[in-house]
């Protein structure tokens, strides 16, 4: 099991589970980070945090701390 926060630039995978709580969970879901969504890690900001991902055809940014709540299936 790998978390989104552990992804390298250019790596992609499919969301397995979102473990966040409360408004962070709701926000992630509303923005389309739901199980079975395909995510591509586009880039990292200077200093490695936050990260930019491509999900559902658009660019989304989130912090490493938030990406830790997204469990991924690799190489799918």
């Amino acid at each position: 099991m790998k978390k989104l926060s552990e992804f390298a630039i250019g790596e992609s995978g499919v969301v397995k589970k979102v473990t966040a709580e409360g408004r962070i969970k709701r926000r992630l879901f509303d923005m389309g980070v739901t199980p079975s969504a395909r995510i591509y890690l586009r880039k990292k900001a200077p200093f490695g945090d936050p990260i930019e991902i491509n999900v559902r055809g658009y660019e989304l940014t989130l912090r490493i701390a938030e990406a830790e709540c997204v469990e991924m299936e690799e190489n799918v």
Binding site: I24, M31, E52, L60, T61, L62
Partner: peptide, 9 residues
């Protein structure tokens, strides 16, 4: 506050 934000094209 959380930083889950769209980066518009």
């Amino acid at each position: 506050s959380p930083f889950i934000m769209e980066l518009p094209a």
